[in-house]
Design a protein around this nucleic acid. Structure first.
Length: 488
RNA sequence: GCUCCCAUCGUCUAGAGGCCUAGGACAACACCCUUUCACGGUGUAGACGGGGAUUCGAAUUCCCCUGGGAGUACCA
């Protein structure tokens, strides 16, 4: 086999979708595993829907996921340009070749005529196939139409290509993930390869680019299967080597419909904004259709690449469920090096004045609050009581259920008295608090009730991080001021 | 409508004729740990869509049905 060259070819008509990210991942993994090249190509032939912001988003998202490309619009390569709109001058050349070889013909049909054909087909419950009305127009007829001001589109002659390279109308190919796939090309219909405005259609541009960029394997979603048959025929008509194809099942929403806005986030960047780690996202998405041979699901992209075989990928659709992604995200949050986590959490702490804490205090705060986080953004509501000095906002529940009780008041008074003499380092606090709880336990007060009183007074809440650590981070002065304020 | 693809616990999956009284992960539930919430630990429950066929033997092969998904553009 010659060099493995795969590509991801997103259309910048939206932010990078998780589905596209997964396709990109599988291409990347395949390239890695086979010492090949991973190429990024931007398919922006539809100027209407394209925007620079989307292009930037695609670049940024792919990079954030760690899916770095070897050739692409920004890094260049030997087969550029890698943006289709910059390649418009090369498509007509190949269209002309097909025209000369008789594999394409000019079509002067108007949208209205085409529409009528379609309606007729629907009425007769037949599959719509272009009538080939324009296949055999004479030069005079074409000239006449041209004089009327009609601009022709170019259609690919399916039957002619099929007959030239295959025995029957059935076209087959061996799919990398699904095995043999087949299609009766008589049902395909002569499709447009060059629009009347002179720009190529998707199916044509893709083939020309894949051919010129020497793409060896095309790995994409199964929504492209019917395109593949058309594309194979174009490759053959051009006398080009046909790449191998592999079609992945789709990612579906929990209701089994296409994953869309109404299901929540769809773009990688939206997941990131919500507080998902790209490491977790990419790991999760890898498990949609692929599973590790050693059963170890938490893996980096490079580790997955070692174990990856395209033939092992599941050919069925899979549903994008948040449960596992959330679990994985919290797992990654727990595993992240503390310095790294401290940085990544900062965007979600902007409502607080971080300068109130020393770096050591901030570190400790993150250490003791990271456990229950599912999303990075969960940190926002997990830490308000570390800020504000002597003052803390008391939640309703903490007031009525804890602070208003007699036991709590008693605990707080005793605590205030005793703690005056304590050193507020964690080690001391740990010992003293243990003794303190024991003291109350003797009186029949459960340890957790004792701690609840202190927690409610100091944090204004009924639950939160380890109490010893909180007191140490806050320091004696702030802690006791809060306790004092809670005593009636 | 037509064409194509797919089908194991709720979800992601392991399983390539006997190793399967179907394994794992997430979620659920129970218990344990515990200064709260969590984390963690230990368990429980939970699936081969249906019907035929082949075979000594089928989750695994074949056919039909059903269900789901996709395509059907001068969009990509």
């Amino acid at each position: 086999m010659s060099e493995v060259r795969v590509r991801i070819a997103p259309s910048p008509s939206g932010n990078l979708h998780v589905g596209t990210a997964r396709t990109a991942l599988f291409n990347y993994l395949f390239a890695k595993k086979n010492n090949g090249k991973f190429i990024l190509r931007i398919e922006d032939t539809d100027a209407e829907r394209t925007s620079q912001a989307y292009i930037d988003n695609i670049f940024d998202s792919l990079k954030a996921l760690g899916l770095n490309w070897d050739e692409g619009p920004d890094v260049g390569g030997d087969y550029g340009p890698y943006t289709q709109s910059e390649r418009f001058d090369i498509y007509p050349k190949y269209a002309q070749i097909l025209l000369d070889k008789g594999f394409a013909y000019e079509c002067f049909c108007t949208p209205e005529e085409l529409e009528a054909e379609k309606e007729e087909a629907t009425k007769n419950k037949k599959a719509y196939v272009y009538s080939k009305k324009c296949e055999n127009l004479t030069e005079e007829e074409k000239e006449k139409l041209r004089k009327e001001g009609r601009k022709p589109a170019l259609r690919f002659n399916i039957a002619k290509a099929q007959k030239a390279f295959h025995d029957s109308s059935i076209l087959k190919f061996d799919d990398l993930v699904k095995g043999e796939l087949h299609m009766d090309t008589d049902l395909l219909g002569d499709f447009v390869i060059m629009k009347s405005n002179g720009t190529p259609t998707y199916n044509f541009a893709v083939v020309i680019d894949d051919m010129l960029m020497k793409i060896s394997h095309v790995i994409r979603g199964e929504d492209h299967i019917s395109n593949t048959f058309k594309q194979i025929l174009i490759f053959e008509a051009l006398g080009a080597e046909v790449p191998r194809f592999g079609h992945l099942g789709m990612i579906l929403a929990p209701d089994r419909s296409k994953l869309s806005k109404r299901h929540g986030a769809t773009a990688v960047s939206e997941f990131v904004e919500k507080g998902y780690l790209t490491e977790a996202l990419i790991n999760f998405v890898a498990l949609l259709g692929w599973s590790p041979s050693d059963g170890q699901e938490i893996k980096t992209v490079d580790e997955i690449a070692q174990d990856f075989r395209i033939g092992d990928v599941s050919s069925s659709n899979s549903i994008f469920e948040y449960d596992k992604l959330n679990w994985m995200n919290s797992h990654y949050i727990k595993m992240l090096p503390i310095e790294d986590l401290k940085e990544r959490l900062k965007p979600y702490l902007t409502k607080y004045d971080l300068s109130e804490l020393t770096d050591a205090q901030y570190t400790r705060m993150v250490e003791v609050t990271r456990e229950p986080l599912t999303l990075l953004s969960d940190i926002t509501d997990a830490v308000p009581y570390f800020f504000g000095g002597d003052k803390v906002e008391i939640e309703q529940k903490a007031q009525t259920e804890v602070l208003d009780t007699e036991v709590s008041q008693d605990v707080l008074k005793t605590f205030l008295k005793q703690a005056q003499d304590w050193n507020f380092d964690e080690e001391t606090l740990h010992e003293k608090l243990e003794a303190f709880r024991a003291e109350y336990k003797e009186k029949g007060i459960k340890p957790k009730v004792t701690m609840w009183a202190i927690r409610a007074a100091v944090t204004g809440r009924t639950c939160g991080a380890d109490m010893t650590a909180i007191l140490a981070i806050l320091g004696k002065e702030h802690s006791l001021a809060r306790v004092k304020a809670a005593i009636k």
